[in-house]
Design a protein around this nucleic acid. Sequence first.
DNA 1: TGACAAAATCAACAGTGTTGATTATATTTG
DNA 2: CAAATATAATCAACACTGTTGATTTTGTCA
Lengths: 206, 206
Amino acid sequence: MGIAERRQKEKAEMRQNILDAAMDLFVSEGFENVSIRKIAEKIEYHPSTIYLYFEDKDSIIFELHNIGFMKLLEKQMSIQNVADPVERLFAHGRAYLEFALENQHYYDIMFILPNPTIKIANCPRWEGKDRAYDLLKKNIDQCMDAGHFSGLTDDGLAFILWSLMHGIASLHIRRGVVLAEFYEGQTSNLVDYSLTMLHTFVEKLM
Amino acid sequence: MGIAERRQKEKAEMRQNILDAAMDLFVSEGFENVSIRKIAEKIEYHPSTIYLYFEDKDSIIFELHNIGFMKLLEKQMSIQNVADPVERLFAHGRAYLEFALENQHYYDIMFILPNPTIKIANCPRWEGKDRAYDLLKKNIDQCMDAGHFSGLTDDGLAFILWSLMHGIASLHIRRGVVLAEFYEGQTSNLVDYSLTMLHTFVEKLM
DNA sequence: TGACAAAATCAACAGTGTTGATTATATTTG
DNA sequence: CAAATATAATCAACACTGTTGATTTTGTCA
């Protein structure tokens, strides 16, 4: 069965090629300007060929969406070794914001663009979001175990914190609104500013 | 000059017709499925005719974006008579969320879709966002004058609050993530839940 | 009524996602 | 090795999309 195995590997490589080309175009040409035909041209295949590897265009975007969640989760896992639970929660927030601003196109696909949402609706149970959410909630629980955030629920705080982080990230990515007052072009500025705000803020909740 | 005046009025009516048709399609057919040709069919004109009234498709969306900001501002003005500044701030938040969830398509155009952002970039100074932002900041300032939120800046708090409200609204509109835990289909549920959270939260900041 | 300007239409261009039929390329069998 | 078969890639076409220059219809005024 060595041959079927190789077939499978080639298929996977081709899928990856397509995904890479799509992501490249996404970054270089922007949102709307990535087309099946341009992807095909980039990998030097006929447009039809892509349909042998993906059901349709949305499936490609959905796959990029999944890859983005993998990357986010990986980044979030990398700070789980921070000892103090509150510090860990801040690191968690920083990791989220850094991910969003350093991978704006992934973040766009994951949380802002409508296309993946459509696919998710047809996807009975997609665990990516749950894993990210559970990780946040676990961190919050551990803060609570350490005696913080009394009077709040973990779900409630998770809801607020995620919404806040997403709000900051997405208002930035679709800028022109609100953030012009703070933002002067450097990503780090916004992350630092936001984290300072988050500190001021979460400390009052503790 | 009665004739030129009528001409102008007819032109304005036609523009409004186009905008109405576009918004209808937006609501009924959804995001991507509104095309110049469908708008034309709806108002029973030839597609080309639309280009006599709008420069291009993005201009139509940009105009809807502006109308949305007018509506939001109007709603926010309507609660400015609440006497207590802190109560007024909460009413402000509620108005924002209600607007977002009751006019999801407007909110989408205003804050989520990429198209208007492109047009804004070419628009040297578009005051819509400023007016909404200034109103929020004014309310915050008045809370501060009443002795609340010591140790915070008005810009900082405005940044946090707007980001939070936008995060809640946009995660809801592009749902499937996070909110499934809370959201059970009724808009009012989410508004009430969010407002409860906001209360718990802002009271600790005071 | 004829001249002129404004409004609407037409036909076409280049681009899009997608698909059924067709050709080329491997792989397996006789 | 050659024939038969399964897989991969291409092709041509369909029905869309936004947009525009040329053309026709409509309305207004002398």
